[in-house]
């Protein structure tokens, strides 16, 4: 009985998505009926073919993938390097710099929106990939995630590697980094998903449809075809499916990501 209740709640949670899929197959005429139909009367794929062209789908996916991919690589590399320095190297001023980094975490994104925009604009990077990507390449949160992971490594492995003749770089690249792989995958995945779904910054810094990322393109569709819900739903489905596929493929790592980051603070 309770288990049936679980199922009912689950279906209730998913219902809006099911409805999205359903509407995306409706013809425009079905908009006029009352009460609104739950299922398409005469299913059509016309909305999809129209949207693939309008978005333009391939270009939008490419843009989003470039943004998410570059940011993922950038954040993982810079976070791993900085986190390693914070966790395993001794140098004067370390504690002060850590405190300063924590202070940076308190700066909300909205404060940076205008100055970053003006800066990118004056560099002539508006509406380009560098403009879209460059500001996002470092994540302080990621640095602390990696620091936490590196702190967990036993001192003796480091000593053993030094005895084996590893220099500082091999120590980091060949020994420490492979040992924190769960944290690296978690960070990579979260960075990728975050950027895939980022909206405000791409909205501000890109103008042309050929630079639009997924959510910005979707918002354009929303304003351009304000009355045409089936169009909007088809575009939404088109742009959600890749995200779902990525999540499915990365499911295993998602779980480890939650394990790694579950207890740590996400700001």
């Amino acid at each position: 009985m309770r288990k049936v209740l679980l199922g009912v709640v689950a279906v209730g949670m998913v219902a809006p998505f099911l409805y999205m899929v359903s509407v995306s197959f409706m013809g425009e005429g079905e908009l006029l009926r009352w009460p609104p139909p739950l299922l398409p009367h005469a299913p059509t794929t016309g909305n999809y073919s129209a949207m693939v062209e309008v978005l333009p789908y391939a270009r939008v996916l490419l843009n989003t993938a470039i943004l998410a991919g570059c940011v993922m690589v950038g954040q993982v590399l810079t976070s791993a390097a900085a986190g390693y320095a914070f966790a395993r190297l001794r140098f004067p001023g370390r504690d002060g710099i850590i405190a300063a980094s924590l202070a940076i975490l308190t700066i909300p994104a909205i404060l940076l929106l205008v100055p970053r925009y003006l800066m990118i604009e004056s560099l002539g990077w508006a509406d380009t990939y560098p403009g879209l990507i460059s500001t996002e390449l470092v994540s302080v949160w990621g640095i602390f995630l990696m620091r936490q992971a590196f702190l967990m490594l036993p001192r003796e492995v480091e000593d053993a590697a030094r005895m084996d003749g590893a220099g500082e770089w091999s120590l980091f690249w060949r020994v420490a980094l492979p040992m924190v792989r769960p944290a690296v995958t978690a960070l990579a995945l979260l960075a990728f998903l975050d950027q895939w779904r980022s909206f405000l910054w791409p909205l501000v810094i890109t103008r042309s449809p050929r630079m639009a990322v997924a959510d910005v393109a979707l918002a354009h569709v929303h304003t351009t075809y304000a009355g045409n819900l089936p169009y909007q739903m088809a575009a939404a489905v088109l742009l959600t499916v890749p995200l779902l596929l990525i999540c499915l493929c990365a499911q295993r790592y998602m779980l480890s990501g939650v394990r790694v980051t579950g207890a740590s603070v996400r700001l």
Binding site: P16, F17, Y19, M20, V23, L193, W196, R197, F199, A214, D215, L218, A219, H222, L229, Q232, M233, A236, L239, T240, L243, L244, C247
Partner: peptide
């Protein structure tokens, strides 16, 4: 997992 814009559009439809 879904993006905020998708969620907004879905609920807008509803």
């Amino acid at each position: 997992v879904a993006s905020a814009v998708v969620i907004a559009l879905v609920w807008q439809a509803i």
